[in-house]
Structures are given as structure tokens and as C-alpha cells.
Design a protein around this nucleic acid. Structure first.
Lengths: 122, 122
DNA sequence: CCGCATCCTTCTTGATACTG
DNA sequence: CAGTATCAAGAAGGATGCGG
């Protein structure tokens, strides 16, 4: 550690970007967050229907991971049939500017690649 | 296809978020972009020194992928010893707002987790 | 100095079937 | 409705050593 010679050096322990990407990286987590932001509150099968291609396993795992990291809250209603609602926590909402920036960048790029694409929502 | 009933539905072909994360996801690509943004132009070994923990393979692969996706430009000088400089392209620069938003979110979160952390740069 | 080739390990994602 | 269990496959990440 000696002094401040190594200021600015990145490693896996102090790198904000590695840290952040570990939380929101992967294939489905950002799309899930984005859908929750758009719809405020969604049930498990709402998400599943909206995220075409996602499997139960991936949806369950992604939601659990997001919940454990405090980005998503899970509210369970004790009824039959079961009802579980997901929504963004405050910390999740704080990520929205980043999500929007990623979306805007990606959408513009994607549209340039494929001019027929007009309805991307996620 | 029928009609527009499925507007807003996400799949892997039209989902901007999946598309974007495929380009910038993974462990090292965002940290590399962030360092290039901070330093404008960096040589291969500059990056390697700054991204502690990265191996040649991962740095090479990540740079190549970013270059192929048009986010990073690679300028090779024909000299001995070799000199190669990397920097962000216009499209890479367009991602900076997203990078900043991710950084700000992650930094605040990380600082709350670990109050001793004051010097995170990446 | 700037990488690539090879080989190996681990993590992520997924298909399918089943349950309270 | 909201998930789990199990098994399988692929992708990502990494160690080591070599080469122009």
C-alpha cells in the first residue's frame, strides 16, 4: 500500500465497474429490471410472458439474484392460487438512469443496423 | 406475426437490452471502455497495468471484441518495438453517459458497503 | 512490445419434467 | 400460479508458454 502511487489502478476488489457488472451483468437481469421499471409491478408470469425466450430457471435465478442484491423486491400474497409481485426497490430505481442510457445507446445502434426495427421495447 | 398484438414483447431478436449487454457485457469490457474514456488513448500495456488481474488473453479478446463491434479503434504504428494505441470510437463515446451512470450507481453502492473505500476509479 | 495458441476450469444458460 | 430438481451443454474466463 505504501503510498498513493497506485491510485487509479483497477483490480477486482476496488473496481466499481467490475463490481457493478457482477450485479447487473448476464443475459436477463437488465431486461428484467427494464421491464419492471416500465410496468412498476409485475407478477412472475407477467415477466415470463414479456421476456420471450426466458425459462423458468433463468427467470427464477435472475429474480433471486436481483432480490439478494437489493434491486428488486418480492411481495408474496398468501393466497390460492399463489400471487407474487415484483418491483424495483429504491436502489433499483437509482439504476434507472443507467438503464435508460444503455437503452438509448443500444436502440440507436440497433436501429442503424436494422432499419426495419421500429418496435424494440426492451 | 399476425398483427401488433405482440408489440412490446421482448425476445432475443428485438430486445435492445439483450443486444446491448451482449456487446458490453462480460467481466472486462466495461472496465476497459471506462479506462479508455478516462485516458483518451492507451497502449496495450497501459491497459494491462491499469486493469490489475487481467491476463493477456482476456485483454486481447476483449479489445478485439470491442473493436469488432466498433466501440474501440486500434491504431498500429509500424515500428520496432511495436506500438499500438487504443481509443474510443464515436460510437464508443456515445456510450459514455451509460458508463458514467453505471459508475455513479456502483460507486455509491460500493461506498455504502465499504466505508473505507474512497479511491475506486473504475 | 504486443500479442496468439493451447489447454483447462468454471460459470452461465438451458431443456425437460415435476410440485405445493 | 409460481416456482424446483435434475441433468446437460455451451460460453466465458484463465494459466502457461511461445512468437513476430
Amino acid at each position: 500500500m505504501s503510498q498513493n502511487k497506485e491510485q487509479g489502478v483497477i483490480n477486482e476488489k476496488n473496481c466499481v465497474m467490475i463490481y457493478s457488472m457482477e450485479i447487473i451483468g448476464g443475459k436477463w437481469r437488465v431486461p428484467i429490471l427494464w421491464k419492471l421499471y416500465q410496468n412498476k409491478t409485475m407478477r412472475y408470469n407477467d415477466l415470463k410472458r414479456n421476456l420471450v425466450g426466458i425459462t423458468n430457471i433463468m427467470l427464477t435465478r435472475s429474480l433471486k439474484s436481483l432480490e439478494e442484491n437489493g434491486l428488486v423486491s418480492r411481495k408474496e400474497f398468501n393466497q390460492i392460487p399463489p400471487r407474487v409481485e415484483y418491483s424495483l426497490t429504491d436502489n433499483g430505481l437509482q439504476l434507472v438512469p443507467a438503464l435508460e442510457a444503455i437503452f438509448n445507446w443500444g436502440k440507436e445502434r440497433m436501429t442503424k443496423e436494422d432499419m426495419t426495427l421500429k418496435t424494440a421495447r426492451c
